[in-house]
Amino acid sequence: MTDGDREEDAFLARLKAFEGRPAATAAQGKDPVNQPMIRHWCEAMGDTGPAYTGPDAIAPPTMLQAWTMGGLSGHTAGTGRSTAYDELFALLDGAGCTSVVATDCEQEYLRPLRPGDTITFDAVIESVSPRKTTKLGTGHFVTTRMDVRANGEPAGTHRFRILKYAPAQRKPRAAKALRPRPVVNRDNQGFWDGVREHRLLIQRCTGCGTLRFPWLPGCNHCASPDWDTVEASGAGTVFSYVVMHHPPFPAFDPPYAVALVELAEGVRMISNITGVPYDKVRIGMPVQLEFLRVDDDLELPVFRADGG
Rank of each mutant, 00 (worst) to 15 (best):
F160T: 02
I125L: 15
G139N: 03
H158F: 12
D104T: 09
L91K: 00
P130K: 05
R145D: 04
T143G: 03
A90Y: 01
W192G: 13
V183Y: 10
D86L: 06
G137F: 07
G137R: 07
L136S: 05
R81Q: 15
R111S: 10
G190V: 04
A155T: 04
D93F: 01
S129R: 06
I125Y: 03
P182R: 05
L136N: 07
G156P: 05
N151Q: 08
L88Y: 10
A95E: 09
D193F: 05
G152M: 11
V183W: 09
K176G: 02
S129G: 09
L92G: 08
F191H: 13
M146H: 07
F141Q: 08
P180T: 13
R179G: 06
A166P: 00
V195S: 13
A166T: 11
A168K: 10
P180H: 12
A123Y: 00
L163P: 03
P115K: 00
L178Y: 08
T133D: 14
Q107K: 12
A155Y: 04
G190H: 13
A174S: 15
V128M: 08
R81A: 13
K132S: 00
P180G: 11
A84V: 04
F141A: 09
E87C: 06
C105W: 13
V128L: 08
G190P: 02
V100H: 02
M146W: 02
L113Y: 01
Y109K: 07
L113Q: 01
A168Y: 06
P130L: 04
T118K: 01
P172Q: 11
G137Q: 07
G139F: 06
S129F: 10
Q169W: 04
A155E: 05
R173A: 14
